[in-house]
C-alpha cells in the first residue's frame, strides 16, 4: 500500500463539511483517476495525501519522506526567476543535495520528459505544454513513490493534453510510481487509469469505482475500442448518479 484515506472527513470553519467520509487505498504502482463535480473535495483529498492539510476525522497514511510524494498542479507553478533546470532541481536542493548534482539530475529529468536543451530557459520563454513538462520533471526528479496530479492538463489544448497523457504513462512505465490524478475529463480518466474513482458532489464521498482492465500503458487505438467506450459510459453514469444523490 502506498497511501490511503480511512474514514476521512474534512470540515472547514464557516463552510461545514467539504469532504467525506472517504475511504481510498492506493496500491504500489497503481494509477487512480479521481473524477467528480467541482467542489466535491478532490483537491482536498490530494492535499491530505501530500500532508499539506490534516483531516478533521479519520486516518491518512501517506509517503511522508522527503521527495517520496510529489505534486503537480493545474498550472505549471514554476518560479519565474529560476531557469527550467533550477526549477526542476529545487526539491533536491531544498533537501540538501549539492547544487551541481541537483542540476545534473534536473537535466536528466528534463531529458526524460522530452525537454533536452531548455535547461537555461526561463518559464516565460516556454509554451504552456513545455512548462507543464518542466513541472512534471520537477515532480519526478525525486523519484517519488506517490505522484499526485491535480488536474494537470486542464489548462492545455486537446492535442497537448493527449500527448502529455501518453508521456505520463511512458514515464510511469519507467519509474512505476503510484499515481493519483484529479480530472474532470472522463475520457482522460479512462485512458490513463487502472482504476477510476468517482466522487459525489460536495461534501464528496465515493460514489463508486470502475476498474479499467486494459493493460498499461495503453495502445494508441485504445480510445476507439468498445471497452474504452463502455468504461467511459459506466464512469459517466456513476458521475450522474453522484450528482443526483447530492441534489
Amino acid at each position: 500500500m502506498t497511501a490511503s484515506l480511512t474514514n476521512v472527513e474534512v470540515d472547514y470553519r464557516g463552510r461545514g463539511r467539504v469532504l467525506g467520509p472517504v475511504d481510498l487505498a492506493i496500491g504500489e504502482g497503481e494509477i487512480i483517476a479521481l473524477v467528480g463535480p467541482s467542489g466535491c473535495g478532490k483537491s482536498t483529498a490530494m492535499r491530505l495525501l501530500a500532508g499539506l492539510e490534516q483531516p478533521t476525522r479519520g486516518v491518512v497514511q501517506r509517503q511522508a519522506g522527503r521527495g517520496e510524494t510529489s505534486l503537480v498542479f493545474q498550472a505549471a507553478t514554476l518560479a519565474p526567476w529560476l531557469s527550467a533546470a533550477a526549477n526542476v532541481a529545487l526539491p533536491l536542493e531544498l533537501s540538501g543535495l549539492d547544487r551541481r548534482t541537483a542540476r545534473d539530475r534536473a537535466s536528466e529529468a528534463l531529458a526524460r520528459v522530452g525537454l533536452s536543451g531548455v535547461d537555461a530557459s526561463r518559464p516565460a520563454q516556454l509554451s504552456g505544454g513545455m512548462a507543464m513538462r518542466v513541472s512534471l520533471a520537477r515532480a519526478l526528479v525525486t523519484k517519488p513513490r506517490l505522484l499526485l496530479l491535480d488536474e494537470p492538463f486542464a489548462a492545455l489544448d486537446e492535442i497537448t493534453r493527449r500527448t502529455l497523457a501518453d508521456d505520463v504513462l511512458t514515464l510511469w512505465a519507467e519509474l512505476k510510481p503510484a499515481i493519483l490524478f484529479v480530472t474532470h475529463n472522463v475520457e482522460e480518466a479512462v485512458y490513463m487509469a487502472s482504476r477510476v474513482v468517482v466522487m459525489t458532489a460536495g461534501p464528496g464521498a465515493i460514489a463508486g469505482e470502475v476498474a479499467i482492465e486494459a493493460p498499461l500503458p495503453r495502445p494508441a487505438g485504445f480510445r476507439v475500442t468498445e471497452t474504452f467506450r463502455a468504461d467511459a459510459e459506466t464512469v459517466s453514469a456513476l458521475l450522474a448518479k453522484g450528482m443526483e444523490r447530492a441534489a
Binding site: R47, G51, T77, L90, L94
Partner: peptide
Amino acid sequence: DPDLTRLFDLYGAGRLQKLLRL
C-alpha cells in the same frame, strides 16, 4: 504563489529556505 508555497512545504523547506528562495 500559494501553490509554489505548498510545494516548498511538501519538499520540507525550512523557514529560512522559504524566505530566501521563495
